[in-house]
Design a protein around this nucleic acid. Structure first.
Length: 116
RNA sequence: UCAGUCGGCCGGACGGCCGCUCCGCCACCUUGCAAAAGACGGCGGAGAGGAAAGUCCGGGCUCCAUGGACAAACGGUGCCGGAUAACGUCCGGCGGGGGCGACCCCAGGGACAGUGCCACAGAGAACGAACCGCCGCGGCAUGCCGCGGCAAGGGUGAAAAGGUGCGGUAAGAGCGCACCGCGCUGCCAGCAAUGGCAGCGGCAUGGCAAACCCCACCGGGAGCAAAACCGAAUAGGGACGGCGCGCGGGGCCGUCGCGCAAGCGAAACGCCCGCUGGGGAUGUCCGCCCCAGCCGUCCGGGUUGGUUGCUUGAGGCGCGGCGCAAGCCGCGUCCCAGAGGAAUGGCCGUCACGUCCGGCGUCGCCUCGCGCGGCGCCGGGCCUUCCAGAACCCGGCUUACAGGCUGGCUGAUACC
RNA sequence: CGGGGUAUAGCGCAGCCUGGUAGCGCGGCAGUUUUGGGUACUGCAGGUCGCAGGUUCAAAUCCUGCUGCCCCGA
């Protein structure tokens, strides 16, 4: 059972990557949902902004396994998921993916909250 | 020691690294005349609960609504007294029920204000009835029939018209008596609920108001996404001007028509009186206010967004006083989350705690086999903690909750 | 934040207001009809009435507290 699902969508502007988190009510009560969201946010903070492409939006959907799964393993999960998203032609939400290495300066802070 | 009962409290601790929100101070940059605002950084401080939960009650606060009186409807509460801002909460007491007891439970007003319901069974289920019976008389004749009396016994039912005993009688019956119960009256105790005593009534007056209802008391509505301020567009709003104007009546003052004039006539408008319709939370009454068209100009307005509301409060702690208590009063002291789609976190280490396994020691039971159980120590493994996350704020209620600490009381057993 | 509905047989629903017997359709099983199956007909089985208390002689029904699901308004 996966701990989370990552989605990506290009935004076509010059901004930094933005990350949104969602954990639905069926996953657990408020305490468990808060804990899942905080662990996922810490994953994004630890992995750094360089792995994600700029001017893209990411959505992380939390699952119940994110409560108990080992944190280091989840870090590898996230890296693998982002690498799969980088492979061109596989993502339906980003069908046209020019693999241009971005010359934009990397964002100095990871996005904190949900997508505003 | 065991069993039980009623409360009170806690609900991981310490440390390391990296982060988040708010507050204070400092440094620097940008905008600006300035006040100040914003961005980034450093240091220091603070940062979820006993239920933050469910949203079941009560308030504060804010807005809406036309002021008062009465009423209706709707909803709620329901022994008495007290506490409280208020409550459906809490405390004390009364009554009823359960328990050996500590203690626990009770929507606990009214059934001679009215309406209604009580299935099935049963003769009969509520302005008092007679199936099986019992008794007397008569007839035929030893078992029935007829008439009359009775309600003790049987049977049905959740419930059968006071209960038990004695007397009494043809058989019976509150028919009489004693006690108990019920009702009424009086006296006493108590603020009261209620209790005690005495007398009277022979008792024909069951249960259900968590059936309608009656009585007493309470309740305007909505909710911080309330609301206020700053603010771009549309619709709507206000003021002014022009044109236009619901109904009826009056009067002929103004106006208009005719006429030299008196006067006659006209009714669109002005004036006076009255009315109608709609709105102002339901009805009635008394008042009050607004509206009863179109066009133009100006003012103004404001979903999203920003700021405020937003945390100092019926506040916490300590001491003293009053009260059986709930609680109240006084003094001192403290400032203790303010996010806002939502911060209070992530990872790691140590230690307590829990649990399982093994070994040793000790005690008890003993179907005497190191069989079972308790306690202590040592070693190892696992889990590393219950229920659960503030969203304007308080007082309660209800529900969820691993484990632990502690106090009062009751019963049983043993010993002194 | 505020309000409403619903839970009954395997499935979809009545019954609740006005308390005493839980019923209908589909489905299931058995039988008849048919050479066989379907259809049709006949019969049968199957329900802690969401959970826990209370009122009552008696509760699916009345009252209270919980639980799940669905919906609406801001």
């Amino acid at each position: 059972m996966a701990a989370f699902v990552v989605q990506e969508r290009r935004r076509d502007d010059a901004g930094p990557p933005r990350v949104g988190f969602t954990v639905t009510r069926k996953v657990g009560n408020a305490v468990e949902r808060n804990r899942i969201r905080r662990r996922l946010r810490e994953l994004v903070r630890r992995i750094g902004p360089d792995v994600m492409r700029p001017h893209s939006d990411y959505v992380m959907i939390g699952r119940r396994a994110a409560l108990e799964r080992d944190f280091a393993v989840m870090l590898d999960d996230l890296r693998a998921a982002l690498a799969r998203l980088d492979r061109p032609g596989r993502n339906r939400t980003r069908p046209f993916a020019p693999d241009a290495p971005s010359s934009d300066p990397p964002p100095s802070i990871p996005p904190r909250g949900d997508v505003s």
